[in-house]
Amino acid sequence: MARLKNLSRNSPGEIIRDIWSRRAFLSLLGYSRVKASLADTNAAGLWWLLEPALQVAVYGTIFGLILPATLRPDNFVISLIIGIAIFQPYASASTRGTNLFRESRGLEENTSISPWAFVVSTVIETHVKTLAFIVIVYIAAIVLGVTPTWWWLAFPLVFLWSSFFLYAVSLITASITRYFPSFPKLLGAFNRLVFYSSGIFWSIEKVLADAPTLLAIAQLNPVYQLIVMGRGLLVGHDVEWPWVVSLNALSTIALLMIGMFVFSRANRGGRD
């Protein structure tokens, strides 16, 4: 006769085993959500590529015209495109996290999939959307005459590397929303702050050259760190790799620990 198990608490090992055993479904779920978001449009599949392309075109035109050349990153246009491409998954993961508990409810009831696993599916969904940006980055790099190198092949790894960071972001925004339902209203403003302070449009190093303390604080931004890595691989910007990778890893681990702590509290707190 099978032993009774306490079902009210899942151990971290059980959660990881559950996520691993459902990996095929979670991937399909992420892909299906992207497909569903495009299903009602004309030429649905084309918008997967067009929407990010339009974003890049709008930002590139506006900031290309108004931003003084002295403050721009080197190889401005491609650097801008890389910046937007790397920021987008963060924005998507943070926003999707705010709806997580509500959206996962029905699935949990019928299949016992835990919210922890659902967050994984959110990250996968984010990556599926990001694939379009990666395609645009490569096309733009070729069109703009950036010299291809073997490091180009490593560029998508920046996005893969960011998966744990995105997971942490979704956990945190889901948890905050659980206790503070107005948070999604604030998140938009916060993401604008991250957007403009991540070095997408201007070189943080040039803008804050005379404010070393502020520069050090700005460099703690994980999105900025990922953008630096992306530009280093594709455009050949100078990057202190050990420092950037270590800092990003530490930031990610810290955010992950915070995310797991608050999410386990929020998950236990229950949903209406």
Binding site: K5, L7, A36, S112
Partner: peptide, 30 residues
């Protein structure tokens, strides 16, 4: 079924019970 976590107390079973309800994942546009 595990869809909600109790605020206190324990739920024990040899296998996780399955709740048959009519809610579930629906992506209306698909």
């Amino acid at each position: 079924s595990g869809a909600l976590t109790p605020s206190s107390g324990k739920v024990m079973a040899p296998f996780r019970p399955r709740l048959i309800s009519l809610s579930g994942l629906q992506l209306p546009n698909l």
